[in-house]
Simulated scan of single mutants.
Amino acid sequence: MRNPLPVLARALGRRPWLMKLASAIVWADHRLYQVSRGRVSLVGIAGLPSLRLTTLGRRSGLPRDTNLLYFPRGSDYVVTGSNWGRERDPAWTFNLRAHPEATVLVRGREVAVKARELKGPERDAMWRALLAFWPGYEMERAEAGRELPIFVLSPGDPPTGEQP
């Protein structure tokens, strides 16, 4: 029998009231990730792929973590800066633009990645694929009133620890 939770999660993900619970969901997800050392997340429990993205703060240079739903694309991880339908792009998008080298923690395994923001026709094609994967992105885009940034995180060499 297939796991019914992804279907339920996708249905709930299209409900505007869910965005009002964003702070509580993010807090609980962060705690679950900490306690399980990256092996369990709310998104994961729902049967969807999740990762913990660690970027360098664009101003501080300090590590910044955030848990995200991702779209698996071969060996790449595709993430979307929906920010739960808020008007502004999430902080991690600004960090990746300033410092594209990052790490992701997926199912307890850390992977060094390099980010690339999609633009133009490539972004448009990925947007269609993302909507098929997570239809709630359209509701979040409409609520935010902005184009949601899309990044491809590709595995690469481990970070050296040096800051550019």
Rank of each mutant, 00 (worst) to 15 (best):
V40M: 05
G145A: 04
A142V: 12
A112P: 08
G47Y: 07
A91W: 08
V43M: 13
L96F: 03
L131W: 15
D89F: 09
E162W: 11
V113P: 01
I150R: 08
P159S: 02
L48H: 08
E117S: 01
G120A: 11
G47T: 10
V104R: 01
A144E: 07
F133L: 13
F151V: 03
E138A: 14
N83K: 14
E87Y: 10
T66L: 03
F151K: 02
E122H: 13
T55L: 02
S75V: 05
E122Q: 15
R64L: 02
L69R: 04
N83P: 11
G161V: 01
V106K: 03
R141C: 01
P158N: 13
G161I: 00
I150M: 02
L42Y: 05
G161D: 01
A132C: 15
P100S: 08
D124V: 05
P149D: 09
G61T: 04
A144P: 09
E117N: 07
S75I: 12
P135I: 12
E117R: 10
M126E: 09
E101V: 00
D124T: 13
L51W: 03
E110D: 11
H99C: 13
R88Y: 07
F94W: 14
A132H: 15
P155S: 06
A129W: 13
V113W: 00
E147N: 08
I150P: 04
P149N: 14
R86P: 04
F133H: 14
W92K: 12
T54W: 00
E110I: 00
W134Y: 15
R52A: 14
E143F: 11
G44I: 02
G81D: 03
G145C: 04
Y77M: 04
L56W: 02
P72Q: 10
A115M: 05
W84L: 05
A98Q: 08
G81I: 05
N95F: 00
G156R: 03
D65V: 02
Y77N: 00
S60G: 08
T66M: 07
W134M: 15
E162T: 15
I45W: 14
